[in-house]
Simulated assay, not measured.
Amino acid sequence: LSHYYEEARRFSQLVSTRFQQAGRRDFVVVTGGGPGIMEAANRGAHEAGARSIGLNIILPREQRPNPYITPELAFRFHYFALRKMHFLMRARGLVAFPGGFGTLDELFDVLTLVQSGKMPRIPIVLIGNEFWRRVIDFDYLVAEGYISADDAGLFTRVDSAEEIVGVLASFHGGTPTDLP
């Protein structure tokens, strides 16, 4: 699955180059700060000469901050709830690469908060069409009435870094500069 690592790295380079220019930081990559896909995203920003944030969680047997996080923007949390709150407080988009329980937990939290109007709508982009179609059968949830067809429109599935940037740019009218 190393292609997801490379795609996360490339996405982060693209978004950081496009939205962190001339002292502006309209989009800053924020990850869980750990290894794997999180490392790839922090690494892509680092390689683009941009800043990125890592919101690390203290776990008994894993999860050390990766070396590509901007040092003064590396934070460690004891509680998942506080960490997720900090993820979402300033979020202008959620980009979810294939992952396990933590990824699914964060994805469903955001979908529920947006669906219920508890947070403003943001672009929710799922990377890896085949992965997400196999892991979560949203069509079945709609067909059985568990979610509405409108709810299935809360996210977009894509396969490439360029598509992710396109979804973010389209949602924000090409630039997020007018955001609060």
Score class of each variant (00 low, 15 high):
residue 47 E to K: 10
residue 47 E to Y: 12
residue 47 E to N: 13
residue 48 A to H: 12
residue 48 A to D: 07
residue 48 A to Q: 07
residue 49 G to F: 10
residue 49 G to P: 14
residue 52 S to K: 12
residue 52 S to P: 14
residue 53 I to Y: 11
residue 53 I to C: 09
residue 53 I to D: 11
residue 53 I to V: 15
residue 54 G to S: 08
residue 55 L to C: 12
residue 55 L to M: 13
residue 56 N to E: 11
residue 56 N to F: 02
residue 57 I to N: 09
residue 58 I to S: 13
residue 58 I to N: 14
residue 59 L to G: 12
residue 59 L to F: 04
residue 59 L to K: 10
residue 59 L to N: 14
residue 59 L to D: 07
residue 60 P to K: 10
residue 61 R to I: 01
residue 62 E to M: 09
residue 62 E to L: 05
residue 62 E to G: 04
residue 63 Q to S: 01
residue 63 Q to V: 04
residue 65 P to S: 14
residue 66 N to V: 02
residue 66 N to E: 03
residue 66 N to L: 06
residue 66 N to K: 03
residue 66 N to P: 00
residue 67 P to H: 14
residue 67 P to V: 13
residue 68 Y to H: 11
residue 68 Y to R: 00
residue 70 T to S: 13
residue 70 T to H: 00
residue 71 P to V: 10
residue 71 P to T: 05
residue 72 E to A: 03
residue 73 L to Q: 10
residue 73 L to M: 08
residue 73 L to F: 00
residue 73 L to R: 06
residue 73 L to I: 03
residue 74 A to N: 04
residue 74 A to M: 04
residue 75 F to I: 00
residue 76 R to C: 01
residue 76 R to N: 09
residue 77 F to P: 03
residue 78 H to Q: 08
residue 79 Y to Q: 03
residue 79 Y to A: 03
residue 79 Y to W: 15
residue 81 A to G: 07
residue 82 L to G: 10
residue 84 K to P: 02
residue 84 K to H: 09
residue 84 K to G: 01
residue 85 M to V: 06
residue 85 M to P: 00
residue 86 H to V: 03
residue 87 F to H: 08
residue 87 F to D: 03
residue 88 L to A: 14
residue 90 R to C: 06
residue 91 A to N: 08
residue 91 A to K: 01
residue 91 A to P: 01
residue 92 R to Y: 08
residue 93 G to F: 13
residue 93 G to M: 03
residue 93 G to Y: 13
residue 93 G to K: 06
residue 95 V to A: 01
residue 95 V to R: 05
residue 95 V to I: 14
residue 96 A to G: 06
residue 97 F to A: 02
residue 97 F to S: 08
residue 98 P to T: 12
residue 98 P to D: 11
residue 99 G to L: 08
residue 99 G to I: 06
residue 100 G to H: 09
residue 100 G to A: 10
residue 101 F to P: 02
residue 101 F to M: 05
residue 102 G to A: 05
residue 103 T to D: 01
residue 103 T to K: 04
residue 104 L to D: 04
residue 105 D to W: 03
residue 105 D to C: 02
residue 107 L to R: 08
residue 107 L to M: 06
residue 107 L to T: 11
residue 107 L to C: 06
residue 108 F to P: 02
residue 108 F to E: 04
residue 109 D to V: 07
residue 109 D to Q: 03
residue 109 D to F: 01
residue 109 D to S: 03
residue 110 V to S: 08
residue 113 L to E: 08
residue 113 L to W: 05
residue 114 V to A: 07
residue 115 Q to P: 05
residue 117 G to K: 07
residue 118 K to G: 09
residue 118 K to D: 14
residue 118 K to A: 12
residue 120 P to C: 13
residue 120 P to A: 15
residue 121 R to H: 14
residue 121 R to N: 15
residue 123 P to Y: 14
residue 124 I to W: 06
residue 124 I to A: 14
residue 125 V to P: 15
residue 125 V to T: 15
residue 126 L to G: 11
residue 126 L to T: 12
residue 127 I to E: 07
